[in-house]
């Protein structure tokens, strides 16, 4: 058997699989995004009809949903960064035998049912929940605060679920930094805080960007957390797509939304790669 035959054999299955179950579906989504919505099964008729995209542009409801999704994703990623950076730094600077167990502790919740962990927050945040109970019990409040079904609850939920995605890449870049760099900075007269700002932080920027994207990208299309924790006003693009598809049975409009959502996700990646490619 020649090397070329061997390679073809190794590649055949994954290539065929991904073409069929990943590439082909996109072609279909694109085709249906230009289809016309009709009554029936399936509820569309193929056409070359830009009306769906026109509607998305005209109706401010959709544009707002896209913008709100981008804003929510950006805020959530920033929150994850603020919480995750000190954690990643602490783990990277911990004694070596502690690093892996600490990292494992960060990842562990990610492996346990995400949906059920969100329900824990419902118990914490609802009007008669544990947080309100504690605040009233301590005499800090007389009336319960409305926490559940607010933007705050949604941000807490997204940050909670995506925090490990931020810590991992940050840790990976921070742990590779030569400790002698920091010693050199301090030896040259930088106080610890200045040394952090001038050496550690700039060198960890690739990790910051990677972590930010790892949180931002899935958060843009997030459906479950806004649905369970967010208020009725939190119309994000993932939730709108879901509603159009399952409740309004408007498949072409849902497909057009998918195309728009894809662009919203692909653009930041493309920008990042373009920047990373430059020296």
């Amino acid at each position: 058997m020649t090397a070329a035959t061997r390679r073809a054999l190794v590649l055949a299955l994954p290539v065929a699989w991904m073409l069929l179950f990943f590439a082909a579906p996109f072609a279909i989504v694109l085709a249906i995004a230009f289809a016309e919505s009709v009554e029936g099964i399936p509820p569309f008729a193929l056409a070359l009809n830009p009306a769906n995209f026109a509607l998305l542009l005209e109706d401010p409801f959709y544009a707002e949903a896209v913008l709100r999704s981008l804003r929510v994703a950006a805020v959530s990623a920033t929150l994850c960064l603020l919480i995750g950076y000190p954690m990643a730094l602490a783990i990277a600077r911990a004694p070596e035998r502690w690093r892996e167990p600490l990292l494992l502790a960060v990842i562990l919740p990610f492996w346990a049912s995400f949906l059920l962990r969100i329900t824990a927050w419902i118990g914490l945040l609802q009007d008669d929940g544990w947080i309100n109970g504690a605040l009233i019990g301590l005499g800090l409040l007389s009336e319960p605060l409305k926490l559940l079904y607010t933007d705050l609850a949604m941000y807490v939920g997204i940050t909670y679920c995506y925090l490990p995605f931020m810590v991992l890449p940050l840790y990976a870049t921070l742990v590779k930094q030569d400790p002698a760099l920091l010693e050199a900075a301090e030896d040259l007269g930088a106080r610890p805080w200045r040394a952090f700002l001038t050496v550690t932080l700039p060198l960890s920027l690739p990790g910051v960007v990677a972590g930010f994207l790892l949180v931002f990208i899935p958060a843009v299309g997030e459906f479950v957390i806004p649905e369970l924790l967010g208020g009725p006003g939190a119309q994000l693009i993932g939730r709108v797509l879901w509603t159009e598809f399952f409740q309004n049975r408007d498949w072409p409009l849902a497909a057009a939304l998918a195309v728009v959502l894809l662009l919203a996700v692909v653009l930041p990646i493309a920008l990042f790669q373009n920047r990373a490619a430059k020296p």
Binding site: L20, F21, F22, A24, P25, F26, I28, V29, I32, L213, I217, P218, V220, G221, E222, F223, G238, L241, W242, F245, W251, A254, A255, A258, L261, L262, V265, I269
Partner: peptide, 16 residues
């Protein structure tokens, strides 16, 4: 698929 929003993966596969 690592960076694909779940709603897109789900929708596109269903349509397929």
């Amino acid at each position: 698929p690592l960076v694909m929003p779940e709603v897109i993966t789900g929708l596109s596969l269903l349509l397929l």
